[in-house]
Write a protein that binds this DNA or RNA. Structure first.
Length: 633
DNA sequence: AGACCGCGAC
């Protein structure tokens, strides 16, 4: 319907030209003049009508005017009109200038019509560096890395010199270190490494390849400082889970009198998230108000509050967000589930569907995790088996691992093993670790040993798994095997990472490391810890020495070694330093041991405190003598 | 023709 109306108007318009030209021929220059005016006024409908009229008269305008029209098409997403301009430009054997074809190509790229852009590129009699760069950046943006690199090589082969635009694009498509080194060398040779876009692209890609040192080197060579280049290096460290360094650089940036923008704040929040720095995160939140409805920044804020264990704050942010996307919902769903609010997570998933946002594979993962956490076996199976049909997401390894966790919790180890055999692309270390966790809780020694061996086959340097395996052997009196593990670890130079816990008090981070006596209040902490243990034993606390490495003789000594676990020190320090109503939040580098878990539960009950301990895998909210993890981890 | 920022199971 709409189409025919448009046609009527168009014909009418043309008719008016036609009739008037019968009486008084309109010189082509006046048609051109009108067309040009409409193009520069960005009046797309009138410009298109004028173009059609010109087409009938076989009149062509100049390239600059057409490029204005094309830009107008892409700014409005007018695909059909754009195609009509394309057709007009090539009609009657006309050959537009290279410049104009480049503009047309960019238009198709903006419309995500890469094949059309490519077809134009292939037909071009002459290609300049813009033509090449347009295609390379299009492929890089579409993550068609091979194509982008292939085009760069052809470009060089044809003797066309890449410029800073080319390199900043192609760097994003670089998917190997060897390629990257080669490119970097070329960039330096051509002197383009001083371009700030190229520099930030270099920092970005080195960071993505986990080459922080090289990223920092490129950063430090910067002569004129630039906010985006600062943002790139801060983001690089924040993403490589080196939050400390990211925050240091942020401080340096502020000293250099740069004002943080959305991108800076997002990365700083990510650093806070990784380090579980709730108070610092809250300070950043104050600066975020300036960018009230910035989606990316709000999502980062949401994640920070979830990962720092403050669901109240996360909820406030979530409610205030006017626009939410799949990431906002997924963050909140996973955050709720991880902090022990599985049913709320599943309810939120229903709201998400009602809101019309399409869940992706990460959303589903959060949903399955929520089911696993709440022990909802049937719901878990339902979502798992119907995810493809309901949401168009094929179950990946990660979804299988979640189901294995769910089955493991329910004690259905055989079903878990069966499910592992079902995984199309085969199990990975996470799969086996999940099974190992289940074996540990349900004390299935043989299966645990099997799972641990699978992990070590994939990661022969994994200290944690050796320790676990050695403990399993020790607990079943297989001393020869214990000795064998020790020897392997020695031979391979594998050391147990010392346990470390961090607690935030008055915006200061206090670190407690096993075997490190540098904390100024350590004597007082130990005194209070002894008193607390004594008090707890009075109400039936029995230290669980199952988790102690077996090189210690005698129960008393083994108990003693438990006492110095870093989370106990951090917890006691939190009790000493924080007001009673304030939650004690601790982050750990290693997974919490059974004894510390029991200890935290009892302390929470006896001292009427809320304690949150985040280990690398799970969140533990202790309140009233129970933990949100349901004692499964 | 261009850069930096947000969600995932153990």
């Amino acid at each position: 319907m709409r189409k025919s109306t448009g046609f009527a108007i168009k014909s009418f318009f043309f008719l008016s030209y036609h009739t008037s030209s019968c009486i008084l021929p309109i010189p082509s220059s006046s048609l051109l003049h009108e067309f040009t005016q409409f193009c520069y006024q960005r009046n797309l409908p009138r410009a298109m009508e004028a173009m059609d009229a010109m087409h009938k008269h076989g009149i062509w305008a100049d390239s600059i005017t057409y490029s204005e029209l094309i830009k107008c098409c892409w700014a409005r997403g007018a695909v059909e009109q754009g195609k009509r301009v394309h057709k007009h430009l090539f009609s009657s054997g006309h050959q537009p200038k290279t410049f104009l074809i480049n503009v047309l190509m960019s238009m198709y790229v903006k419309f995500n019509m890469l094949d059309d852009a490519r077809a134009l590129f292939d037909q071009m009699p002459e290609r300049n560096f813009v033509s090449w760069t347009t295609m390379i950046s299009a492929y890089a943006n579409a993550k068609l890395n091979d194509k982008a690199l292939e085009f760069l090589i052809s470009m060089l082969r044809e003797g066309v010199k890449p410029n800073m635009f080319t390199y900043s694009s192609v760097l994003r498509a670089c998917d190997g270190l060897a390629n990257l080194r080669q490119l970097h060398a070329n960039i330096i040779k051509s002197g383009l490494d001083s371009d700030i876009y190229v520099r930030s692209a270099l920092i970005d890609i080195y960071s993505k390849w986990d080459q922080s040192e090289n990223a920092l080197r490129v950063f430090n060579e910067m002569a004129t400082e630039d906010l985006v280049v600062w943002n790139s290096i801060i983001a690089g460290f924040a993403q490589n889970s080196d939050g400390d360094e990211a925050l240091n650089l942020f401080k340096r940036m502020k000293r250099a009198r740069f004002l943080a923008d959305q991108a800076t704040l997002t990365s700083v929040l990510r650093a806070c998230t990784g380090l579980a720095l709730l108070e610092l995160g809250r300070q950043v939140h104050v600066h975020v108000f300036k960018y009230d409805q910035d989606l990316i920044l709000n999502n980062a804020l949401l994640d920070m509050y979830c990962k720092c264990g403050s669901l109240e704050d996360a909820n406030t942010v979530f409610t205030r967000m006017m626009v939410k996307d799949v990431i906002s919902w997924s963050t909140m769903i996973a955050g709720l589930a991880q902090n022990g609010y599985s049913r709320e997570a599943l309810r939120l998933f229903e709201s998400m569907k009602a809101s019309g946002t399409k869940p992706n594979h990460i959303t589903i993962l959060g949903v399955l995790f929520a089911c696993s956490h709440a022990g909802l076996l049937e719901a878990g199976w339902y979502y798992f088996r119907s995810m493809k049909k309901l949401f168009g997401v094929d179950p990946g390894r990660e979804h299988y691992s979640c189901m294995i966790d769910l089955l493991g919790r329910a004690g259905k180890l055989n079903d878990a093993v069966e499910l592992i055999n079902e995984i199309e692309c085969g199990p990975d270390a996470v799969t086996w670790r999940t099974l190992l966790g289940a074996c540990r809780v349900h004390r299935n020694v043989d299966l645990a040993i099997y799972a641990a061996k699978q992990i070590l086959r994939l990661y022969p340097q994994d200290a944690g798994t050796y320790i676990l395996l050695s403990n399993i052997y020790a607990n079943t009196q297989r001393w020869d095997d214990v000795t064998q593990i020790r020897r392997t670890m020695n031979d391979m130079g594998i050391r147990k990472e010392p346990g470390c816990s961090w607690v935030e008090v008055n915006k200061q981070i206090h670190a407690f490391i096993l075997g490190d006596n540098s904390h100024p209040q350590l004597d007082e902490i130990n005194k209070q810890l002894n008193q607390l243990i004594h008090k707890l034993k009075g109400v039936g606390y029995v230290p669980d020495t199952n988790f102690v490495l077996q090189d210690l003789e005698g129960e008393e000594q083994r108990e003693h070694s438990l006492q110095y676990h870093s989370e106990k020190l951090a917890l006691v320090f939190g009790l000493m330093s924080l007001p009673k109503e304030q939650t004690i939040r601790i982050r750990k580098n290693l997974r919490i041991c059974g004894d510390c878990h029991l200890f935290a539960k009892l302390v929470a009950k006896m001292e009427h405190r809320i304690i949150v301990i985040r280990d690398p895998i799970r969140y533990h909210h202790f309140r009233d003598g129970v933990c949100s993890c349901g004692d499964y981890w």
